[in-house]
Nucleic acid binder design. Structure first.
Length: 322
DNA sequence: AACGCATACAACCGCATGGAA
DNA sequence: ATTCCATGCGGTTGTATGCGT
């Protein structure tokens, strides 16, 4: 059956989003919550495909996104998880709640892949490469064994699977013990856990105005003025005042409530679908175990599943100790 | 200053998946 | 069981920006 396009190609705008569009989208989502994306273009007047709206929200505007340079720990985490999980960017992103899968994917493709390649030529950080290669070998053998399972006898396959499961445990251990304690998973208490999208837009606008001559390509001067006018008329701010405050004032939502995990409308969008459960680490690991099981066992070999399901992170008190 | 090339990243596209009708 | 739809995901592309010549 042929599927109709997600949106009418005619009259649908493409390309970079303007600050006005961002504001419209954020305002809408703030009022209605994320989801029902099909309604967004019609309800907001945005001449964008629903998919584009969703992507813009999830990859750029939603609360809790951290942009900018990746830390060394994040980098290491990504390398290990990529080796462990492959290009499952969403799964990897679920372990870096402040990063989007798209960001991680881009970072991998532009920085890390190159970096690893370079390092593999032979230089420092051998441990990183080692871990990556080990994990990769372990898992590629897992997956390849899955794909080539038809060539093996059942006994061989099951034996191989058991080995793979064991290796997966080790790899998982390696991957999750990057930084002594997995504090990536737990939002910092001392700072706002989920910077609001007002912040994101504020940053956007700051950069936007800073580079206004170039930005005029994607947004006219008058539109900037409109945005600024909207901000100043609402909050009567003068230039130099933090724009995020202006946005808070404009939209009438507060950082803490907007980005709060308690806010049901947004908690679901704070992380990727699996992300929300990571507030509870035990649940997170159960989730990960299940996911891992599904991946390696493909839901076919219950024996392996049973074996791995018996493994408990609680059984290994030193699991996160290096 | 101008040009060309390289890089980074936002956005798009197409397919997969799961749930509802 | 089938179809349809919304959403998620990963690969790819387009373009702005940086940098060297």
């Amino acid at each position: 059956m042929g599927r109709p396009p997600c949106c009418d190609k005619l009259g649908v705008k493409k390309g970079p989003w303007t600050p006005e569009e961002d504001i419209m989208l954020v305002t809408y989502v703030q009022q209605h919550g994320p989801g029902n994306w099909r309604q967004v273009p019609t309800n907001t007047g945005l001449r964008r495909c629903s998919k584009s709206c969703r992507l813009r929200w999830t990859n750029y505007l939603r609360p809790g996104i951290r942009r900018g340079d990746f830390t060394a720990d994040e980098e290491k985490m990504i390398i290990q998880l990529q080796a462990l999980l492959g290009n499952k960017w969403a799964a990897i992103a679920s372990y870096l709640p402040e990063r989007t899968d798209n960001d991680i994917k881009n970072y991998w493709n532009t920085h890390l892949k190159k970096k690893l390649k370079k390092l593999q030529m032979g230089s420092d950080e051998q441990d990183l490469i080692q871990v990556h290669n080990n994990n990769k070998d372990q898992f590629t053998s897992s997956t390849s064994s899955s794909s080539s399972s038809h060539c093996m006898s059942k006994g061989q396959w099951e034996k191989r699977l058991q080995t793979d499961i064991h290796m997966a445990k080790q790899a998982l251990n390696d991957a999750l013990s990057v930084d002594h304690k997995p504090n990536f998973f737990v939002p910092q208490v001392t700072k706002p856990s989920y910077p609001s999208s007002t912040d994101n837009i504020a940053k956007l606008l700051k950069g936007f105005m800073k580079n206004s001559p170039k930005s005029n390509k994607i947004c006219s001067k008058s539109s900037i003025d409109e945005v600024n006018a909207a901000i100043s008329s609402e909050s009567k701010i003068s230039s130099g005042v933090d724009l995020s405050e202006a946005f808070e004032s404009l939209f009438g939502f507060d950082k803490s409530t907007f980005g709060s995990p308690e806010n049901s409308d947004f908690s679901q969008s704070n992380t990727s679908p699996e992300g929300s459960i990571f507030q509870d680490e035990s649940k997170r690991f159960t989730m990960f175990e299940n996911w891992l099981l599904d991946e390696i066992a493909g839901g076919v070999v219950d024996q392996g599943k049973e074996e791995l399901s018996h493994f408990s992170f609680d059984e290994s008190p030193d699991f996160f100790d290096n």
